[in-house]
């Protein structure tokens, strides 16, 4: 199962991002665990400077905006 972390201070965009990833995963029947991370020290460790950011299996995939649907689908499908 993939672990997807959504990094952000809890602003609406970060929540939307987390919801969107959960929803798309559910639609494609892919099991994921989506975790929201709000600790700034953790964001610093991943080198994230603009939120929301998305970390898929410990790899930073995206930062600075709500991701596009196509991107999310690609992350979910990629082994």
């Amino acid at each position: 199962m993939k672990t997807i972390k959504v990094l952000g201070s809890g602003c609406t965009k970060c929540q939307k991002t987390a919801e969107m990833i959960s929803r798309i995963a559910a639609e494609s029947a892919i099991e994921v665990s989506v975790i929201k991370v709000t600790d700034p020290a953790v964001m610093m460790e991943y080198g994230v400077m603009s939120t929301p950011a998305v970390v898929v299996d410990e790899q930073l995939m995206h930062s600075g905006s709500i991701p596009h649907r196509a991107d999310v689908e690609a992350w979910l499908v990629k082994a």
Partner: peptide
């Protein structure tokens, strides 16, 4: 940049 990014930005610059 969105003000909700000011903390990670601050840390990114500082580090």
């Amino acid at each position: 940049f969105c003000s909700c990014s000011s903390i990670p930005l601050f840390l990114g610059f500082t580090s």
